[in-house]
Design a protein around this nucleic acid. Structure first.
Lengths: 364, 364
DNA sequence: TCGGTTTAGTAAAACGATACAGTAAATACC
DNA sequence: GGTATTTACTGTATCGTTTTACTAAACCGA
């Protein structure tokens, strides 16, 4: 009994009218009670000035407010108080796991504090990266959280950046301790006996790409393992799919330089890389160890379960929200932290193993 | 050179003052130009009434607006026009992939049309499910999109629900053709020779759970394959991790009733189930075929790549936004669709194979 | 009975923009 | 030369709330 509807087809209509009653205003409610709006405002907001109002009147007011389902117009209030209790969040992409995790932490704190937030995802398009902050400012957000989004100019609002790496005045940076992350990964691989390590670099647009690469290089030299240029490939496409890692790993394989371990830019690309390695006849981790980055949900349940460097993404989001609200509360003149560092964690699972005898060609 | 900073530690402060210049208002700009706010408003909004204003004056106005970086106060505008160009989006959870995909589609359309949106994730807590819509209404959103979130009462605003299944007046439902989805999955398994099919039911809080189960039962009876009660398990924990599927699959295995295929509630739980099967000594798909649902990014790159029923999540989000904006534009009296149906798609990958001779115990 | 305090409120301005109704001067028309 | 129209604007009210300053009546103590 398969149906032959096309996607998005509309199956039914109805036209029962929905009353468009404008919500009741303070003024009307006041008129109804024969009081002034001022009085209602004082009472409903439990202002100290309402102390002179007798309880009986207060009760009448509360009663009427409930009866007419009065709720104050947030817009009018915002206009008067110049407070919107709203912040803007810029992310590159919503569906890639990374931003969603950070956002989740951001939201956790913001909603708890009575703030709401606008999300805008710019998909790395520079015109949008320029435009969205303006639009957000027009809407009078009180601050901006920028996730993996470069900040050019000194902002007119408090800005907290997650995984940004520019040193811009007015911006608080929440960053991972990248030196430590690289040390953990390279150190662990070296401890397993790996000396030929392939690296997947991030896309140019990702703000972690450059630091990650620098810290890997310095960790490598610290552990005295050379990084062969042919064993480095860069992720290319702007896609939240493992495809990018697959392609990059193929490139490294094509170069023909043997290696026993691969350190991917993130878990998603690690998963793609594993597929490429497997298709080339290598098994992971027996022939080649793979280590990812981030520890997204999928990492633990991939097959093999991914060894990875965990970034506390949720916590980073929450810290971002906390610092932003603190800056908003303290006012623009107050000092604020320029950098807040969070620590990575090595999560050992099944995609890494001791290095085996190096073989140029797969066993097949 | 490992550092010993604790997470969230603050490394630096500075106190360079940020000027708190209130953005310039029309009134002030008008005063500066020796014109009335009205004139500026007409000119800057390119109102037809500005036709009487000579170009020279217009130029002066535009010039000054640029110079003082004037941008209209959205809040004031909203108050006057009773339009906020803002909608609210309710989701259960941001970090689970599903909501993020839908949200991505929602955003795509909304921002294109000049709308922004507030996100609120309720984590299935019923007090939040009640409270957030109220808060959103106080903030004068013009409509609400509810993703996998039950709607109780007839709303005071246009509501579009994605994967909701209540028939509530005032709500437009964007739903998958679930009958077809079940037919595709069960039909495909049957065509591969499977007759003993295990089912992972969704959590009670998921609005798809009930329909999915009903349509699976009816598809099963249509194809004349019985569903053994011991081969049905329900996902329990409220977690976006494959753990839930792992646990449920263990429960089915424990029952000891043999089966050759498993139809999971979603891809995430399918991935967990595969792990459980594998640990029990079965190989997928040789011993047991597994089919997922949704087609999230991870599905294609899991090992084995997941055969699944694709839901067009991004498109569903976009449709939700389109219908909501249409309803907002048409006003509350206008007719609106009650249901919009989208079609699923069977995506065949490597986690399914022809049924093999049934064996009660794993080959090991 | 006078001055002061408390009680119970109110009036008006303000936030920033927009809509509507004017108006004064200049020009056009016959 | 007188009316009609166009040009170039302005004044005021309004959206819904909050704030500040005010008032009028009642009460209170000496």
């Amino acid at each position: 009994m398969a149906m032959s509807r096309r996607d998005g087809e509309i199956t039914n209509r109805r036209s029962k009218a929905q009353k468009a009653e404008r919500p009741i205003s303070l003024k009307k409610l006041a008129a109804h009670l024969g009081l002034s709006p001022t009085t209602l405002s004082l009472v409903l907001n439990e202002s100290p000035l309402a102390s002179a109002i007798p309880q009986e009147t207060k009760d009448r007011i509360f009663e009427a407010a409930r009866e007419f389902n009065y709720s104050p117009n947030f817009i009018a209030r915002s206009l008067r108080s110049a407070r919107t209790y709203t912040v803007g969040v810029l992310v590159p992409e919503l569906s890639d796991g990374y931003s969603a995790m950070v956002l989740s932490g951001v939201e956790d704190h913001l909603l708890k504090e009575g703030y709401f937030y606008f999300v805008a995802s710019h998909r790395h398009r520079s015109n949008l990266i320029e435009r969205y902050p303006q639009l957000l400012m027009e809407r009078r957000v009180e601050g901006i959280i920028a996730v993996d989004t470069p900040q050019r100019h000194r902002p007119l609002l408090p800005v907290v950046s997650v995984s940004g790496h520019e040193d811009v005045e007015g911006v608080t940076n929440i960053v991972l301790n990248h030196e430590r992350a690289a040390e953990l990964a390279i150190g662990y691989l070296v401890s397993l006996g790996h000396r030929q390590i392939a690296i997947l670099k991030g896309q140019d647009f990702s703000s972690d790409t450059e630091v990650r690469w620098q810290t890997i290089r310095s960790a490598a030299s610290q552990f005295e393992v050379p990084i062969h240029p042919a064993l480095v490939a860069q992720l290319e496409a702007d896609s939240p799919s493992p495809e990018t890692g697959y392609v990059a790993a193929l490139k490294i394989l094509a170069a023909g330089v043997p290696f026993t371990a691969l350190f991917a830019f993130n878990d998603i690309s690690a998963i793609g890389a594993i597929r490429a390695l497997r298709e080339a006849g290598y098994s992971v981790p027996e022939d080649i160890s793979v280590i990812g980055f981030d520890d997204v949900h999928a990492a633990a349940f991939h097959n093999p379960a991914l060894t990875t460097i965990r970034q506390p993404l949720f916590q980073m989001g929450r810290l971002a929200a906390e610092h932003l609200l603190k800056r908003i509360a303290n006012g623009p003149q107050a000092p604020y932290p320029e950098i807040v560092v969070v620590e990575p964690e090595l999560v050992i699972r099944q995609s890494t193993a001791p290095a085996r005898q190096l073989s140029t060609s797969p066993k097949k």
